Computed example of a mutant assay.
Amino acid sequence: MRRGEEFAAAIKRGKRAGRPTLVVHLGTAGEETPLVGFVVSKAVGDAVTRNKVKRRLRHLMRDRLHRLPRGSLLVVRANPPAASAGYEHLAAELDLALDRVLRRRESSMDGHR
């Protein structure tokens, strides 16, 4: 995900789930393959630290893309504790946040049927 409108759609109109190290926002737009974007602000650390966190999150999401429904717009926002979190801890936090946001999406979809 690279366009600001896609980030805004996921953050403003999507479901949200947070953990101490990260927050995920899940929106939808059409029937395309899922798009994932990452937000790692200067609050997380210097450029080297931010890039390391972003690389870890990108790698972790590759193995989890199959869980996202078609048309998903997912934004993964790193919180400052992500800088000192180990790889396994970051993976566990991402799994918990994804589980929660996907359940919320399903429950809201059930209400519209």
Rank of each mutant, 00 (worst) to 15 (best):
M1A: 05
R3C: 04
G4A: 10
F7Y: 11
A8P: 09
A9V: 13
A10T: 07
K12Q: 14
G14F: 08
G14W: 05
G14C: 08
G14T: 07
K15W: 06
R16N: 01
A17Y: 07
G18Y: 08
R19P: 12
R19D: 13
P20F: 09
T21I: 11
T21K: 12
L22T: 10
V23S: 12
G27F: 03
A29P: 05
E32V: 03
T33M: 14
T33R: 14
T33D: 14
L35D: 00
L35A: 15
V36H: 15
G37Q: 04
F38K: 10
V39L: 14
S41W: 13
A43I: 01
A43C: 07
A43G: 09
A43L: 02
V44E: 05
V44H: 02
G45C: 09
D46I: 02
D46P: 12
T49S: 11
R50L: 03
V53N: 07
V53K: 01
V53W: 08
R55D: 02
R55L: 05
R55T: 01
L57E: 02
R58Q: 04
R58D: 01
R62S: 14
R67I: 10
L68F: 04
P69N: 04
P69D: 05
S72K: 04
L73C: 00
L73T: 11
L74E: 09
V75E: 00
V76G: 04
V76H: 00
V76T: 06
R77H: 06
A78E: 02
N79L: 15
N79W: 07
N79Q: 15
P80T: 10
P81W: 06
A82K: 05
A82Q: 06
A83W: 10
A85D: 12
Y87P: 03
E88F: 11
H89W: 11
H89G: 13
L90R: 08
L90W: 05
L90K: 08
A91K: 09
A92H: 12
E93K: 00
D95P: 08
L96E: 12
A97E: 03
L98G: 06
L98P: 03
D99T: 07
V101N: 00
R103A: 11
R104Y: 01
R104G: 02
E106F: 03
S108M: 03
M109Y: 10
D110N: 08
H112L: 14
H112R: 14
R113W: 07
